[in-house]
Amino acid sequence: MRRDQRPYFIRRIQDGLNKFYVNRFIAPAFDALGTHPDITSPRNVEIWGGGISAGANLHLHASKGNMVRLATWRSGDREGRIEIGDHVLISPGTHIVASERIVIGSNTMIASGCYISDSDWHDTYDRTAELEKHRPIHIGENVWLGVRVIVGKGVTIGENSIVGAGSVVVSDIPPNCIAAGNPARVVRELDMSREFRKRSALFADPDRLERDMDNLMRYILRENTLLSWLRSVFSPTRSD
């Protein structure tokens, strides 16, 4: 498809069904979920295990063929925890799996296909057990993980830092820098004389934001009709 062919009222119906699905099946899977979550393609989201919480304005975007998975593992008396701050973006194909504890700071952006795990899941020599191959992960506020970044056990990534696409993070990344590579290393310091504009700025007035997005959607879809949408579904052409 070259563009969204749905008429506005069909888009509204589908959005309403998605919200119902989120409220009925996704939100109860969290221990706590803040206000105004935005979860796209919720049938491609899996929340598994206890101890998972997220703050306000969580943007959790899955897509067909790119499931988002948040999962915790129980081992004896220990249950993993995933703690996500406010205004966090999690993109399609990302998996976050905790045996102990993973903390993701507010305003963090996680691009598509990232993998974050605080455990190796198997010991080096005893391949049948995890043993002590787990250590917590802490991702600071306003961090940006590029596409397909892997974050391993015991890592701390400092606030404001950026990790380049495809990097493998196996040791701490300090705050206010850009890191890249396998293993990821600091390649540049950020200019701290410049002011950061964080994702929280988008949500200063969430009700107004929702109205503005609805008006934009209404404008973009204004020329679409039910008949043209049905034709594009059942008999698409190059113009669709």
Rank of each mutant, 00 (worst) to 15 (best):
P174D: 00
H87G: 01
V151Q: 03
K64L: 12
V169I: 05
I104F: 00
L70T: 02
D15F: 00
S228D: 15
E210C: 04
A71W: 09
K153V: 00
I13M: 13
T128K: 13
R148A: 13
I173V: 10
V187P: 09
S75N: 13
N182C: 09
D118T: 01
I139V: 05
I150D: 02
M213L: 15
S235R: 15
G85T: 01
A111R: 11
H138M: 04
N224P: 11
P236G: 06
G152V: 00
D77Y: 03
Q5K: 10
E46N: 11
A204G: 10
L209Y: 08
N66Q: 15
V149I: 11
G85H: 02
L131P: 00
V151L: 03
N18M: 14
I178T: 10
K133S: 14
A204R: 12
N224W: 06
V170P: 01
V170L: 08
N215L: 15
E195K: 14
E46G: 05
T40N: 12
T225V: 05
S53L: 01
G158E: 08
S193C: 00
S161M: 08
L60C: 07
S41N: 15
L70E: 07
D205V: 02
L58P: 10
K133T: 14
T72G: 03
R231W: 10
S119Q: 05
N224E: 13
S41H: 15
T72Q: 05
K133Y: 12
G55C: 04
A29Y: 09
L202D: 13
N224Q: 14
T94N: 11
L221Y: 10
M109N: 04
T35L: 10
E189I: 01
E83R: 07
H122P: 10
N107Y: 00
I96A: 02
R194T: 06
L33N: 05
R185A: 11
I116Q: 10
V45Q: 06
L209P: 10
D172C: 05
I102E: 07
I110E: 01
F9V: 13
H87P: 03
P28Y: 06
V97D: 11
H134F: 11
R148F: 07
L145F: 05
R135T: 07
N182V: 13
V143M: 02
I104M: 02
P175N: 01
T40R: 15
S239Q: 13
N142W: 01
S228W: 00
L221A: 09
H134Y: 13
L60K: 03
S75P: 00
N160Y: 09
T156V: 09
I82Y: 03
G164V: 08
D86L: 01
V163G: 06
N57R: 02
L33W: 04
D4R: 12
D240W: 07
L89H: 09
T72W: 06
I10Y: 13
R74C: 09
F20D: 11
V168M: 06
I10V: 15
N18F: 14
I52Q: 05
G166I: 07
N142S: 09
T237I: 08
I26M: 08
A179H: 05
I116G: 09
S235Q: 11
S171F: 02
V151C: 03
V169T: 03
L230T: 06
P37H: 05
T94S: 14
D4A: 08
P183E: 06
R11G: 02
L216V: 04
R148D: 15
L230E: 14
R188V: 02
L190Y: 08
V187H: 10
